[in-house]
Each structure stands twice: as C-alpha cells, then as structure tokens.
Design a protein around this nucleic acid. Structure first.
Length: 729
RNA sequence: GGCGGGGUAGCUCAGCCGGUUAGAGCGCGGGAUUCAUAACCCCGAGGUCGGGAGUUCAAGUCUCCCCCCCGCUACCA
C-alpha cells in the first residue's frame, strides 16, 4: 500500500496554543485526510519539543519543574487540538510526539552516535569538540542571547542580564560541534537534483543562496551544568544535546529509529514503512529543516525527507505579526466560541495563498464564512435538499427523462442528459486534485466554488419551483434535482479533507452510505447517488453569522480582557522578550533562532517588531524624547586598521573621553586609508547596541554622510577643536 | 549593500511566450425571482494597470532609469 508521512514541527513547549500552532496543524491535517481519502496509508505527526533553557526558565517562573511545565503545555495543546478536531480521536494526527519520552532519548542518542561515527564528505569527523563563546550570566548559570541582555549603563561595560540586572561574562564553554560546513556541496547538489525538496520555489532560492554564501559548523551541545533539562550527550555526561539537534531527530524517533518501540502489534516497523516523509514548517524555521536536518541525516546515513514545505505567516490588518503583547493576535477560544471549526479551517486554507503571508482578523473570517459557506455551499445544499423534501417527499428522484418528455424538458432548458454538468465536475475534480497535490489549497477551493456557482445557476435557470407546478414536468423536475444533488455529493467528497465535520453532516442529511472520507475523489463517477434514497433531516450546514452582533460580542470580550488584564491563554510561561510573536511563529518561537555558529554572535534583536505603527500617510516624526535616546559624542580615532578578509570594514579604537577607548567598526575601507584617519575627530553614536562584525565587536557607529549614487561615505568632522566625549545635541 | 518577489477596480488578488472594448471574488448600486441561510440569478459600477523614457504596427505584458513595499542575506552599525 502507498504510504504517506507528514509532520508538523514539534511545537516548543513553553507557550500556550496560538494561531501559528493551529494553522500549521490544520494544513497538515487536511493533507493527511486527503491522502487517506486517496488510499494512502498515512501517518501524521505533531507534538512538542520539550527541552532547553527557555523551558527551564519558564518552568522556574511559574514554580514548576520542567517536566510539570511541559506536561501542562502539552495538556493545553492537546485540548486545543481536540477542540478543533485535530486529534487522533477525531481523525487527525496519529501521534503526538514528545521529546521528553524515553524512547526519544534512546533514539536521539543512537542518532548522535551514528553521526559521531561518521566522516564528513571532506573526511573530518562529523562531530568534534570545540569552544562555544557567548555572554554568560553566572546567577542564571546560562548563556544569554542578545535579546536576553540589556545595555550596560556605562559604555564599555558588559551588558546586563535582564533577570538579574547584573553584568554577564564573556565566557567560552566547551561544546560539541557538528561539521555543517562540510555539507555545503552535498546540500547544493541536493537542491539542484531535487528542486522539489524545498517548496515553494522562492524558499528554495533562499535556502540555496544561504548555503552558497557559506555554512558554519554549529554547536550541538551545552554543559549539563547549565542546561540540565536536555538529553545527555552519549558517553559524555558533562554535556547535553542542544535543542535543535535533539528536536529534529524526533521525526524519525517517532517512527522507531534507534529504538524498538514503534513496532506495531503485527511486528510492522513504522520507520521502514513511513520514512521518508514530508515536513510542513513555517518559513521562520525553514533553514533548520532544509539545511541542518538534511545534513544531519546525511551524516547519520539516513535517507532524506521527500520535501520541506514552508508556509507563510498570519499578520494583522496592518501587516504586523500577531503578538500577544501587541494585543493583535487572534485568540483561539474566541474563534471556537463564535465560529464553526470547519469555517475556521476553510478560512485558513482559502484565504492564504499558500506560502505567502496573509492578513487576518475576526471580521474577515466572519465575512468569508458568510459569503462562501452560508450563502455559497450551505445555501446550495439547503435549497436542493429542501426541494427534494418538498416536491418528492424526501426521496431522491430519478435522473431519467423518458423519450416522450425529452422535447418538453429541452423546451424549458433542461438537457436530456447530465453530460454537461458531469463534465464540469470532472474537470473541477481534476483541477482540485492537481492544486491540492501542489499545496495550492486556495486555488483548489476557488475551483470548487466556481462549480458551486455553476450548480446554483443551473438551478436558477431550470426553475424547479416552476416545473413543480405542472404535473407533466415532473420528470424534468426530478432530473434537475437529481443532478444538483449528485453534484453536491461530489463536492462533499472533494471538500471532505478541508471540512470533515460539515461534509459528514451533509452525507447524513443526504442519507448516503459510508462516508465522504471513504471515497477517493479521483474515482468519483457520475450517478453514484441512488434514486429512491430517502434523505434525512435537512438543516443549515453553515448558519449565517449575524455580523453586527457577533463582532460586537467579540469586541466586548476583548475589551473586558484588556481591563481585567487576564488573557484567555494565560501569559505565564512567557517572558517579555520571548512573547514577541506568539501569534505567528511556529515551532521556533522561543527556541533559539539557530544553533549558535562558532565564533559568531547570537541572533540580534528584532527591531521594529514591537514598535507602534505610524499613522498612515503621516510623516514619521520623532519627538524630542526619541531624539534624546540617541547619544552622539565626539571621538578621536586612536588606531585604525583593515579587518582581515573584509574589504569594506575598518576597525578603529576611538577615544570617547571614557576610561578606555572603544573598538568601533565602520564600512568605509573602500574610501579611506586607515593611516590617514588616525588622530581625526569624528562623531560617534555611543549608545548603540554592540554588534559583532567579522568577528570583531563594534561598540558604536561612526557617522558619515552618504554621497552620490554609490553612497560614498564622507566622515562627519568638526572644524573647531572639540574635546573627546563632548555630547552632540 | 547584495539577491529574490511585488506595486492592476474600495478590499484581496488573476492576467503565460506583447495583440480585439484590462478580468475574478468580496463589498457597493440597480433589476429579476421566491426553492433556499434577505440567499440564488442578471446588469452596472469606468481602475492614466507605481512614475518616466524606450523598442514595436501594437505594452500591465519586453528593455532601461526612478520611487515605494515585502522576504532572505551581508564585510551598515
């Protein structure tokens, strides 16, 4: 039997369920249901990534052990998935994977050993020991990323830990590294040979150019003394496996890789049966899945996945990512309370051009539900079934029109056979399948809705309510209603993976045998609907939502929540800097962006992400308070030299009148000779967050005018004598 | 700074290798109708297709320049 294995990312278990979790899981769920319908034996994985420092911290903040904390989050997630019909009981995922499970420890360790045994394509050991450098907070006992640090009060001092408000240390720690850099060639070859490996294409291009620009080895361990809540490195109890390395392996340990626990009762080996699978991910964690993971698999000698599919993010109406702190994130309980699950599913798949970002708020969901579902599909089924009920006492009429009635039928615009309608349906069916196979869900749905309009039009033109008035048009009337009912049956089959509940409900209303999930759309044939079937009770599939009323209710709920300060999805377990994008991110969210690169700094903070929007069309003025935040001082260049292997950068030490001179880098090497600059007085932004460039930390910015097309820099200088350190205002 | 993708009706977007009056859905206005969830059906609303120049018999559709937005990335800091 054909098999299909699909995964969502395993979600980082330190934030409560949100739109990002819902979306990714819904898409995977649709794909899984679709494949099952198509006759594939399908395995659908979702779950949680439960280790690491951030989880330890979240747990500590809420007074729980890490295990208690992840159990709590898992409970919330499972409850949410259940409410949206995504769990196993409701035909959704097959396994909820948790990285804290013992079998994963065993499998991940086996994977590590397999990698450690191997050589890279360039002949190095795949894993080696080195040093990982970063800012270390002694009271926390952990390394800090830039987002977890604040600027020191005095320039030149170390940054401060946000938790302890104490300076952190520059520390280098022994760490294992994975030779990612040796896989550049193999990865590029992979991307070239299998252009479908990363989808959509735009994302493939990004991954390719990223790989071309050079990969660095990644740190894949931490000291157990600092990150104890993690899987131990095999044979080295002082170290634990770094979160990303650990997490990615779940996709195969869940199937039994490296341990024996996923053999089914009949002795069937799931790993052999289902791997390789395909990974559905948010674009924010594409590189881990498209670069790191394949390299890891190559190193371990495991077959690569079929594909990594990246989807876009949900934004609010102003184009910003949904965020709890901004209050613009949709709340899942609100969705659940006011909208049908299938309406939300429909919206998610219809509104977003798959792969791109899309905007969402409560109103647009409602509008789509009313326009497409209530007025569209729902109304079509309603009018058709009601007429069968009314004109034929609820018994599906015969499609046949006898010879002597043919002319009569034709006269009122009803053809003697259903050929035209059936052909349209076949075409729609084929296009739908085609689009679905290419993850173009929005197009697939568009196509189906085109068909709905055609059937509506067919009914309006045939005017069954007029036919019903004359007894000798009875055959024609029956044929019209049969055709539209049969068309609805087809549509129910097509739409089933996207709207499982509603299509089943429709199936019941039509009193059809089996279920829409049991029919492969590719095998639909015209005439499957049996005349003589007594239909069940007719009811509205998608009741119209009273927009004014519901929107007012939702706004009121949100308002109340603001006042009381309570959030539906409690804000415990999140951290000021961690909660930045809960409405949008997927598995990566508070997991470190990327395994730290050797000798490189951590990811920088994301400026702008939480900044208030400017009124549209208004010049972006700053006020004096904003200006005062920028500290500019006079500095004297003490030393200047070129940065090795960099043709644009100069490295200065500049006296700003402080205890020690600062090291500052500037990208002006193509226009200035370093030796000519020594002794020169320049204007320096002195309170800019330090940032590493080409391995050197730059502790400020030298100001220069940008001249001409090529942006030639011209240093800002003083014509009068000014003391070092004088502030510019 | 580099690479990539965009800027088309109020909104969301289609418009491939250049070719009749520039399209769809939603929303809006009007008409028709009553089987249906004030639904469905029909008609309409005129958008200088970001700006400019060019190639051509003919350009959203190709070339060049410019402006703006987004994504990724960098030796901007």
């Amino acid at each position: 039997m054909k098999t299909f294995y699909i995964t969502t990312p395993i979600y980082y278990a330190n934030s409560l369920p949100h739109m990002g979790h819902l979306y990714t899981t819904v898409v995977a769920d649709c794909l899984a249901r679709y494949k099952r319908q198509r006759g594939f034996e399908t395995y659908f994985l979702t779950g949680t990534d439960e280790h690491g420092q951030n989880i330890m911290r979240s747990a500590a903040r809420s007074g729980r052990t890490p295990k208690e904390h992840v159990d709590y989050i898992v409970g919330e997630l499972k409850q949410m998935f259940g409410a949206f019909g995504l769990d196993r009981e409701r035909g959704g995922y097959d396994v909820f994977m948790r990285t804290s499970e013992p079998f994963h420890y065993e499998g991940a360790s086996a994977f590590w050993r397999a990698v450690a045994r191997n050589k890279t394509p360039k002949g190095r050991d795949c894993i080696y020991k080195g040093f990982y450098e970063g800012w270390f907070c002694a009271p926390c006992g952990t390394f800090k990323t830039d987002e977890e640090l604040s600027l020191p009060e005095h320039e030149g001092d170390a940054p401060l830990c946000l938790i302890h408000e104490a300076p952190v240390d520059r520390v280098s720690e022994e760490s294992y590294f994975f030779c990612l850099s040796d896989y550049e060639g193999a990865l590029l070859e992979l991307f070239e040979k299998r252009p479908d490996f990363v989808r959509p294409e735009a994302r493939l291009n990004e991954v390719v150019s990223l790989t071309r620009s050079g990969l660095q080895d990644v740190s894949i361990s931490r000291l157990k003394s600092s990150v104890g809540w993690a899987i131990p490195v095999p044979d080295d109890p002082e170290h634990t496996i770094y979160i990303w390395f650990d997490a990615l392996i779940n996709y195969i340990t869940a199937l039994g890789y490296g341990h024996g626990e996923r053999l089914r009762g009949d002795g069937e080996n799931l790993f052999e049966k289902f791997w390789p699978g395909m990974h559905l991910v948010g674009k924010d964690i594409l590189r881990q899945h498209a670069i790191l993971w394949p390299a890891m698999l190559m190193a371990a000698g495991v077959e690569l996945p079929h594909a990594v599919i990246a989807h876009g993010m949900w934004l609010d109406q102003t184009g910003r990512k949904g965020s709890k702190t901004l209050g613009n994130a949709l709340e899942l309980p609100v969705l659940l309370r006011h909208y049908q699950v299938d309406a939300v599913r429909y919206f998610l798949l219809r509104e977003m051009a798959f792969g791109q970002d899309s905007k969402v708020d409560y109103g647009v969901i409602l509008e789509r539900a009313n326009a497409d579902l209530a007025s569209g599909f729902g109304n079509l089924t309603s009018r058709t079934l009601t007429m069968i009920e009314r004109y034929f006492d609820g018994v599906v009429p015969s499609p046949e029109i006898s010879d002597e009635r043919r002319l009569q039928a034709k006269r009122v615009g009803v053809g003697s056979d259903a050929q035209e309608l059936a052909s349209s349906l076949e075409l729609v069916r084929d296009q739908f399948v085609q689009y679905f196979e290419n993850y173009a869900f929005h197009r697939a749905l568009e196509t189906v809705w085109g068909m709905i309009a055609r059937v509506d039009k067919f009914i309006s033109e045939a005017k069954p309510w007029v036919l019903a008035k004359s007894e000798d048009q009875r055959e024609t009337l029956g044929a019209v209603l049969y055709r539209s009912a049969e068309a609805i049956r087809w549509l129910a089959v097509l739409l089933h993976p996207l709207m499982p509940d509603s299509t089943r409900s429709l199936w019941r209303q039509m009193n059809l045998s089996g279920g829409p999930e049991k029919i492969d759309p590719a095998e639909l044939t015209w005439g499957g609907l049996q005349p003589g079937t007594r239909i069940g009770e007719v009811s509205a599939l998608f009741p119209r939502i009273d927009k004014g009323k519901i929107m007012a209710e939702i706004e009121k709920e949100i308002e109340q929540r603001k006042e009381t300060g309570t959030q539906v999805a409690g804000s415990d377990g999140t951290h000021a800097t961690q909660a930045a994008v809960p409405g949008a991110a997927t598995a990566a969210e508070t997991k470190p962006e990327q395994p730290p690169m050797q000798g490189a700094t951590e990811a920088e903070a994301v400026p702008g992400a939480a900044q208030p929007a400017t009124a549209e069309g208004v010049v972006n003025f700053i006020n004096i308070d904003d200006f005062v935040k920028v500290e500019m001082r006079v500095g004297e260049i003490l030393t200047a030299e070129r940065v090795p292997k960099a043709d644009k950068l100069l490295r200065f030490t500049i006296d700003l009148g402080e205890a020690a001179p600062r090291q500052i880098l500037a990208g002006i090497a193509q226009y200035y000779e370093p030796e000519n600059l020594i002794g020169r007085k320049v204007a320096v932004v002195s309170n800019l967050q330090p940032r590493k460039l080409r391995g050197f930390e730059s502790q400020g910015m030298v100001l220069a005018a940008s001249v001409g097309e090529e942006g030639r820099p011209v240093l800002a200088t003083f014509t009068e004598d000014v003391p070092n350190g004088a502030r510019l205002k």
